[in-house]
């Protein structure tokens, strides 16, 4: 597989990483995802890594990068389903991925994205945003 599929679901994009990521695959995903957000005007991105069993520091950083890029493109990003072994590896590598929103499973990740979207719509254009669970500076960038 030389490409990771990006699925569109309403205003959200779903990325499910089902294979072990190698560096080129991660770079391609980064390109694809950013252009896809731009093209579709997606407001939320869900990255499912529940099938990912091995990570190195590069892939760890790529996950953080992709998440950061989507955020700059005005899409909430949530990474779901990290395996315990992967979490331990990332911690041992010294990567705590600050600023990346994590969720236990797809259901909880989608609930988070919907809540964020509902908050945005409820607020309208002139109201200030609710605080986004420690993601400082996020809400103020939008209008």
């Amino acid at each position: 597989m030389d490409r990771i599929p990006i699925l569109r679901m309403g205003k959200f994009l779903l990325v499910s990483i089902q294979v072990d990521m190698h560096d080129q695959l991660a770079m391609t995903l980064q390109d694809d995802l950013t252009s896809m957000i731009e093209r579709t005007g997606a407001r939320g991105v869900l990255i499912d890594i529940s099938a990912l069993e091995m990570v190195d520091s590069f892939i760890g950083r790529m996950i953080a990068n992709i998440s950061g890029m989507s955020r700059i493109l005005d899409a909430h990003t949530v990474v779901v389903g990290m395996q315990p072994a992967v979490a331990i590896t990332l911690v041992e590598l010294g990567l705590s991925l600050p600023g990346v929103k994590m969720a236990l499973n797809i259901e909880k990740g989608m609930a988070y994205l919907r809540a964020q979207r509902a908050a945005e719509e409820g607020d309208g254009l002139n109201a200030s945003h609710h605080s986004d669970d420690g993601e400082a500076g996020y809400g103020t960038r939008q209008e």
Binding site: G81, M82, P84, V86, S96, M102, N105
Partner: peptide, 8 residues
């Protein structure tokens, strides 16, 4: 940190 990475 590991617990946070898992999303909990």
């Amino acid at each position: 940190t590991a617990i946070r990475l898992m999303g909990a």
